[in-house]
Design a protein around this nucleic acid. Sequence first.
DNA 1: CGCTAATAGTTGAATTTGTAACTAACAACG
DNA 2: CGTTGTTAGTTACAAATTCAACTATTAGCG
Lengths: 151, 151
Amino acid sequence: MTEKNDFALQQFLPYMLNQAAEASSLGFQQAYKERYGMLRTEWRVLFHLGLYGRMRAQDIVARASIHKTKVSRAVQRLEDRRFLKRERDEEDRRREHLELTAAGLKAYKDLYAIASKYEAQLTEGLTAQELSELRRLLAVLEQNGRKRLKT
Amino acid sequence: MTEKNDFALQQFLPYMLNQAAEASSLGFQQAYKERYGMLRTEWRVLFHLGLYGRMRAQDIVARASIHKTKVSRAVQRLEDRRFLKRERDEEDRRREHLELTAAGLKAYKDLYAIASKYEAQLTEGLTAQELSELRRLLAVLEQNGRKRLKT
DNA sequence: CGCTAATAGTTGAATTTGTAACTAACAACG
DNA sequence: CGTTGTTAGTTACAAATTCAACTATTAGCG
């Protein structure tokens, strides 16, 4: 059955990336899930607001390439838990500005510290050079992936 | 709002990995989705059987770290489409052996060729050294992620 | 203005996934 | 053998995601 073995599943990058992404998210997922009952999109929105401050849903959509319905629902849930507040833009009433509340900022800082520590454990054994090389290569792949390749 | 900027979201590895994984899967996903109406777990199961031949669901679970309910459902769907057949193990009647049908093998070969070509496009601009380094680093991260780190 | 198109964000329904409980078959050990 | 535990795989139900359609508002342009 095994034919040309220049290609193995374990070497196929979309596969490897997914495995690595899934495995490396497990630990952090546990933190935001157990401590705050958050979903993946929710911590991401929280972090966007925590790191970059007040912005609109659309900004998050663009920056993170998350679909707008996911962002919409994440924002809703974060608002329900009083982690963020919305403010309608009076210049253009379609828009709304998002901002963390004190509670949201607190949660963000807590998770930030955890993420920081978690990242360190995750990369244990790798040198600074390896890490920056890794980040560079990942960015290239993401880039290449997004410019819609023909299959 | 932006505080210590030693940590940026775009540099957080679980985040980066996820972004890269998602982006780099887009093109291939389009292929298996449009051509065969498959889901992610389904092409994976198909590839496992195509590359390594007859095996049990449990083998796929172990090899790919996919949850058994996902495998169970993927196998069911692949069987419905006549891409694989099951055979009960008469030594131990709890087990069943999975094998691709001719149609399944054909689909596998087709997707294999696409994956191969797609991978090449995805990695355009990277040297062989960079690629093998990338693969090595991804494997390390996956390893580190799976040994349940404390958060 | 008044019509058509575009943008921001939401919602509902269908699909997919996750969790836990389940069935069936075998193993181990008294 | 018979009770208890384990393993393979499935299923039911809840939760999350996707996709398309929707509302509301603004923009463009005759």
